[in-house]
Structure formats: C-alpha cells, structure tokens
C-alpha cells in the first residue's frame, strides 16, 4: 500500500480532477456507418470479372457519348481515364497504316508517327495550358484531348469506306466534307470542356494549339490514300 501511495504522489495535482467512482465510465463506441457502406460499394474483390470489365467499359462508353454530345458537363473532367484515348489512338494509327505510302516506304504517316504525334501533341498542349495558368489537372486535359479525337476516328472510318468506291473528284469532295465536319466537331467538343479552365483573356491562347492539333490529324486523315 505504501508503495502504491508513493507512486500516486506525482499525480497529486490531478487528484481534484479525478472522476468519482459512482459514475461508471462506460458508453458505446459507435463506428460511423460510412466506411462499411463504402466498402460495400467499392469492394471489387468478390464481384465477377465480367462486371469489373463491363463497369470500366461503361465508363468509357459514357465518355464517348459526352464527346458526341458536348454539353458543358464535368463528366470527362471528374474521373479521367486514358483507356479511351489509347483505344482511339491505336485505332487511328492502325487504320492509317496500309496506305499507298507503305508499299515503297515513301514517308506516309506510319504507326509510330501517328502514335507519337497524338501523344506528344496532347502532352505539349496540356503543358501549354498548365503554363498559361489553367486550373485543370494534367491527366484530365490528356483525357479530354484524347477522347475528343473520336469524331476524327469516325471520319477516318467513313473515308476508308468512301475510298473503297474509288478515289475520284467526288470521293475527295465527300472526304473533305466529312473531315472538315469532324475537325470542327473535335475542336468544338474539346473547347467546350477545356475553355472554362482558363482565364477569359487567355482562352484564345489555350485553344489555338488544340485547333492546330486536330487540324494536323485531320490533314493526315484527308490525305490518306490506300494501296491498291
């Protein structure tokens, strides 16, 4: 007991604050309900693989829809992914492959060149907009620029179908119309998403590179001629 009293002397100052023994220290430790529900919502461990893939595909498809119908929504900005851009870029590069230029290695756009132009171009545009003081994150901008290639990819598909029928004046006129329309569409869609991130007196500076980027891709699509 003496030892115990000695040990308690350092805390003598605290003795006034001591909780009286009549009131038992008890209570319920309630775990907030948030984490458990979040676990349920985000637990991807025990769901079928098919569902996981489908969910991602649905997200990508949803973004495609947003590009086709570009209203000023933040769906493309909120959760970015680079699957769509990769898919579009590879499709574009593969479809541009097999042109007349390949036969004698005469310098038509090759797979690697298309790939590098698209990725390097969008990285440079993103850096440009960040340097101008844009309030958009790096990957969000990459995602938007990549998804907005979709109209041009569709134009390339149309062009290849038109080219099957021959490459006369009429076919060129049709291709020109299709590529111009899709170029306008791409630029319009991307500016609808990106323009708000810039100050008003710098919007034109941020949009011009985007315009140039899609113009060059449009040019590559328009001048594509298949080998026969």
């Amino acid at each position: 007991m003496a030892l115990a009293e000695e040990a308690s002397t350092p805390f003598v100052g605290l003795s006034n604050v001591s909780i009286s023994e009549e009131i038992p220290v008890e209570g319920n430790i309630t775990v907030p309900a948030g984490p458990s529900t979040r676990d349920d919502a985000f637990s991807t461990l025990d769901e079928p693989v098919k569902e996981t893939i489908l969910r991602d595909l649905r997200a990508v498809g949803n973004k495609f829809f947003h590009v086709l119908y570009p209203k000023r929504s933040s769906a493309l900005l909120r959760d970015w992914d680079l699957w769509g851009p990769l898919l579009l870029c590879v499709t574009l590069a593969l479809l541009l492959q097999g042109g007349a230029a390949d036969s004698d290695d005469q310098g038509g756009p090759q797979f690697a060149e298309v790939f590098v132009i698209i990725w390097f171009g969008s990285i440079v545009i993103t850096l440009n907009s960040k340097l101008l003081g844009g309030t958009i994150s790096f990957f969000q901008s990459l995602c938007v620029l990549g998804y907005c290639i979709m109209p041009l990819t569709m134009a390339l598909v149309v062009c290849r179908i038109v080219l099957l029928s021959g490459s006369g004046m009429v076919s060129f006129a049709v291709r020109l119309a299709v590529v111009t329309a899709s170029f306008g569409w791409s630029t319009f869609a991307s500016t609808a998403f990106l323009a708000d991130s810039q100050l008003s007196n710098r919007k034109a500076l941020a949009i011009y590179p985007v315009f140039l980027f899609y113009f060059v891709i449009g040019w590559m699509i328009l001048t594509f001629s298949p080998r026969n």
Partner: peptide
C-alpha cells in the same frame, strides 16, 4: 447546351476569380 447546367460554368469562373 451550356444553359442546362449553369453551375459548372459558375464554378470555373469563381475558381478564376479566386486565383
């Protein structure tokens, strides 16, 4: 289509103003 949800627009403007 921008008139459908004006809030997003505002948010960005505000962000600009804040900056």
């Amino acid at each position: 289509a921008s008139k459908n949800d004006p809030f997003q627009f505002q948010e960005f403007d505000e962000a600009g103003d804040l900056l």
